[in-house]
């Protein structure tokens, strides 16, 4: 089985040097569906940041998509990121752009054709049930609606891997189900690797998944 992520003995910390993840190991198969859980402040978001190269491990080896992230060049990192879709815990939508433009961002960066982009954005808005909000700016939307925009943006360019940080954190059951269906769909139909940080693993999920739990700086698989 191809590994999309192999982390060996990685330690992660911010500039204040407090160790968040301590010599942890995790390996994730390409095309798998993975949940990461852990208490608030345990380092779930921190671990995701390392996966998309925003936070470099201060020790150990971290391979993502076959590339070692330690000392990776900006150019290679940009290339890698163009094939990852991220739903950030704080959404990170561009305030001065309409929601369509926000969803388009990965498509623009990947150089998609304008016509394709337009169709794709319309489809995605329909999938996340936001067609009626067309033309609005992020701050004119509710928190849950913004979260769905972030979800649509992460799916836009059919990435090989989706990293979703509590993608249903602000959603009611109905909208949460919508998100799970989308992630499941990407995983089963496009073989996208899906890594989700969450506090509640949905019971309705039909796909097989792996579950890792973060505690005291280490990552343990839960069976």
């Amino acid at each position: 089985m191809d590994k999309v992520i192999i982390a060996k003995e990685i330690s992660l910390s911010y500039s204040n040097n407090e160790t968040i993840i301590n010599k942890a190991n995790i390996s994730i198969n390409a095309g798998s569906f993975v949940f990461i859980t852990g208490a608030s402040g345990s380092g779930k978001s921190t671990l995701l940041k390392s996966f998309y190269g925003a936070l470099k491990p201060n020790q150990g080896s971290l391979m993502v998509g076959g590339v070692e992230l330690k000392g990776i060049s900006t150019k290679k990192l940009n290339f890698l990121r163009r094939h990852i879709g991220i739903v950030f815990q704080d959404y990170k939508l561009v305030k001065e752009w309409t929601i369509e433009k926000n969803i388009m961002l990965p498509l623009i960066i990947n150089g998609y054709d304008k016509g394709v982009t337009k169709v794709q954005v319309e489809t995605l808005l329909k999938h996340v049930r936001l067609k009626h909000q067309f033309g609005k700016y992020p701050l004119e939307l509710s928190g849950g609606e913004q979260q769905r925009v972030a979800m649509a943006r992460a799916l836009a360019h059919n990435p090989i891997m989706i990293l979703a940080d509590e993608p249903t954190g602000n959603l009611d059951d109905y909208s949460s189900q919508l998100i799970w269906n989308l992630l499941e769909g990407a995983n089963t139909q496009l073989n996208t690797t899906v890594i989700v940080v969450t506090h509640h693993i949905p019971e309705s999920l039909k796909v097989d998944y792996k579950h890792f739990h973060i505690e005291y700086g280490s990552i343990n698989e839960v069976n």
Binding site: Y52, A54, T74, K75, L77, N78, F79, L80, R81, R82, H83, I84, I86, F88, K92, L93, V94, K95, E96, W97, L105, P106, I108, I109
Partner: peptide, 16 residues
């Protein structure tokens, strides 16, 4: 900064 940061997280090259 915010927009440039977000674009960078999706792999936009510096010129973009």
């Amino acid at each position: 900064a915010e927009r440039m940061n977000i674009m960078g997280l999706f792999g936009a090259p510096v010129w973009l």
